[in-house]
């Protein structure tokens, strides 16, 4: 939509047409003041860190170190796998909770109650230390092995993060499913669609619009939470950064480095989320929101025509 600033319609005696209003705009002194204060604080912080004994060169030196790169890869892998478990589990749990079957509904309620009610770090330690009480794993006909062979650090991390995430995703998915108008279910049923088909073809695609934004939040949260699994012997970005920090004698610098990498990754994820949201908005709004690139182009062209694009 383009909004021209032209609100001078109405009866006029002058045949020359509407005359634009010339008024002295309100002065916003507060804005200058806050800007000055903010800049002063920023300078103070930069000065403080400049005084500290920080070997800034260590950050770029190690930024693309092979161990750091391995850590970044492991962190991403863990994030993706945990979220896959979380989302799949979350959808199943949400459908179970909304099911008319009281047994499945109760199971889902209990699962969510337990996994949402205990800290994820405690859950991680639990999975990690189960080896102290179990010597073997014995799934009767299928699989039998020593517990220590079975419960690798990766599996520990995945179970700890994924199962916990499923509980949160279940609530997000449930909210999404409930947000879809009941008339949709009725229309699908009236056409002879089964419950399953209605859910898959009609309800879930519409629920996605509600589910995606908080899920993006969850992915970013997950990416950061993976740093906890350093505690259960799974080496990822944070763990490698710590290790390098201890060996090279630059621990603080390596924390800066890790923080920078996490920021890079979360920023990339935010962009991805924007495009996924745009995809699921189709049909719900008459016009899809512009991509960032389209926005930039619109702004560039707007300089010439002096129109405000909203």
């Amino acid at each position: 939509m383009t909004a021209d600033i032209d609100k001078t319609a109405g009866p006029k005696d002058t045949p020359a047409g509407p005359q634009a209003i010339k008024a002295i705009p309100v002065r916003h002194y507060g804005r200058y003041l806050t800007a000055v204060i903010a800049i002063a604080i920023l300078v103070a912080i930069i000065y403080a860190f400049g005084q500290g004994k920080i070997n800034w060169h260590a950050v770029p030196d190690y930024f693309f170190d092979s161990r750091i790169m391995t850590g970044v890869g492991k962190t991403l892998l863990l994030t993706v796998l945990s979220m896959v478990i979380g989302i799949a589990g979350g959808i199943v749990l949400a459908v179970m909770r909304l099911s008319k079957n009281p047994v499945t509904s109760a199971i889902a309620w209990f699962y969510i109650w337990f996994f949402r009610g205990t800290p994820v770090l405690v859950q991680l330690f639990l999975w990690f230390n189960l080896g102290l009480v179990f010597e073997y794993i014995n799934l009767m006909p299928f699989y039998k092995d020593y517990w220590s062979n079975f419960m690798t650090p990766l599996l520990t991390a995945l179970l700890g993060l994924g199962l916990n995430e499923a509980a949160y995703m279940a609530e997000i998915c449930r909210a999404g499913l409930l947000a879809v108008d009941e008339g949709q279910t009725e229309a699908a049923h009236a056409l002879g669609m089964s419950h399953g088909k209605t859910l898959r073809r009609i309800i879930i695609p519409q629920a996605m619009r509600v589910i995606v934004p908080p899920t993006g939040n969850e992915v970013i949260n997950m990416l950061k939470t993976t740093s906890l699994v350093a505690q259960v012997q799974f080496a990822e970005l944070f763990r490698y950064a710590q290790d390098i920090g201890q060996v090279s004698g630059a621990p603080v610098e390596m924390y800066f480095l890790a923080a920078a990498w996490y920021l890079v990754m979360t920023s990339v994820l935010s962009v991805g989320q924007y495009y996924i949201e745009r995809y699921y908005a189709r049909g719900s709004s008459r016009q899809l929101p512009p991509t960032p690139w389209q926005k930039v182009r619109a702004h560039l062209t707007s300089f010439s025509s002096r129109k405000v694009t909203v």
């Binding site: 008339g183 009236a190 002879g192 669609m193 088909k197 695609p205 519409q206 719900s284």
Partner: peptide, 30 residues
Amino acid sequence: RRNIGMVFQRFNLFPHMTALENVIEAPVQV
């Protein structure tokens, strides 16, 4: 229900599908 068509007061079209997809959906899926 396959043999009974229903038209609702508030249309209840599937908003994530085009008009054509709305019409195709049930014959294909059901």
